[in-house]
């Protein structure tokens, strides 16, 4: 699609060095109301001061347990829920002042986990894909839809007139991907987009996502709980715990050596795939704590093996770890000035 290429060149404002999305201090707290007067009785700290950048053409993987705020972060990015605090800068334009939400949404699209719930059951898949372009007044929406169906591996002659219930899960997720691409987005947010699929179908869809990224020059934010999938698809990985970023870095740096004890626990919770070398000890005990009343200081200190007094007292800041300048972790153990007894030990090792 040469048309898309020229379009993209026109839209690229800051050049390759400028991040496509710069999220700063994103914060979202949900009130819990209860009682007769419906007073606010508690607050869910879903996302608390999350900052990150998404570079042009990269895939940023976001991992973490349920309730860590990864989906809320995605919804904040695309403006499905309102920010309590923080700023989003899209290719140099601050959202709200330089670029309106409506304009940004043309460039940012999302694919959700539940392929069936995210399609209108009364529209054929061709109409579903053409809906966005039609509303935005783009030329020949139906032709565009049929073209995209072919691109995601569904023969338009066989599938264009089918309804969502006539498709399998893998096919429906291909339709959702085609719909996301119909607006010629620059950023696609994939929120557990392959998690509900069977493994053999998941591999097909992952191959497809890689092909489409090359063909359309896309940037992905890929949210998943499956570390194998994230490793396969991501350039950089962001690890979240209870609404905060605990570690971020290039995929091979993090998969080589995890800086944060939480990241390390996530990795050792992966099945070993070796019957002679099974996991004998669970890396973490209990479930993730409730984000309603997150622990003080480092939020992981209640489950951390290395926790000391400093961990519950002060919040660690993201700082570089190891040899890679882009590998950051928020842990007192890597800050020699923190007073943690293990601090600095690893820096010299």
């Amino acid at each position: 699609m040469s048309e898309t290429d020229t379009l993209r060149d026109n839209r690229d404002r800051g050049g390759p060095a400028q991040p496509l999305v710069l999220a700063q201090n994103l914060t979202k707290h949900f009130p819990i109301r209860s009682g007769l007067l419906n007073r606010q009785t508690a607050t869910v700290h879903a996302v608390d001061g999350v900052s990150f950048a998404v570079h042009k053409g990269e895939t940023l993987g976001i991992v973490g347990e349920s309730g860590c705020g990864k989906s809320t972060t995605a919804r904040l990015l695309i403006g499905l829920i309102e920010l309590d605090d923080g700023t989003i800068v899209f290719d140099g334009d601050a959202l709200g002042s330089a670029i309106s939400l409506r304009d940004m949404r043309k460039s940012v699209q999302m694919v959700f986990q539940d392929s069936y719930a995210s399609l209108n059951p009364r529209l054929t898949i061709e109409e579903t894909i053409a809906f966005g372009p039609k509303v935005q007044g783009l030329a020949d929406p139906l032709g565009r839809a049929r073209d995209l169906l072919g691109k995601v591996g569904l023969d338009p002659n066989r599938f264009a007139h089918r309804y969502p219930h006539e498709l399998s899960g893998g096919q429906r997720q291909r339709v959702n991907i085609a719909r996301a691409l119909a607006m010629s987005p620059r950023l696609v947010i994939l929120d557990e987009a392959v998690s509900a699929l069977d493994k053999s179908v998941e591999a097909q869809v992952l191959n497809l996502l890689c092909d489409l990224k090359d063909e359309f020059g896309l940037t992905y934010v890929f949210i998943s709980h499956d570390l194998n999938v994230v490793r396969f698809i991501s350039d950089r990985v962001l690890v979240m715990y209870l609404g905060e970023v605990v570690e971020v870095g290039p995929v091979e740096a993090i998969y080589g050596k995890q800086a944060h004890p939480y990241t390390a626990s996530l990795f050792s919770a992966m099945p070993s795939m070796d019957p002679d070398n099974r996991t004998m000890e669970p890396p973490l005990s209990g479930d993730p704590p409730n984000p309603v009343n997150p622990p003080s200081g480092c939020r992981f200190h209640t489950r951390c093996r290395f926790a000391e007094d400093v961990c519950s007292g002060a919040k660690p800041a993201l700082a570089t770890f190891g040899n890679h300048p882009d590998h950051l972790a928020a842990c007192h153990m890597h800050d020699p000035a923190s007073g943690h007894s293990l601090a600095g030990a690893e820096a010299s090792a």
Partner: peptide, 24 residues
Amino acid sequence: RGLLSANLHNVAKGTRLEAIAGAP
């Protein structure tokens, strides 16, 4: 064998996955 490779255990980035084509 297809299921084993679709598990993506230690699959490096950029490799083409050996997906089983089609559906059950």
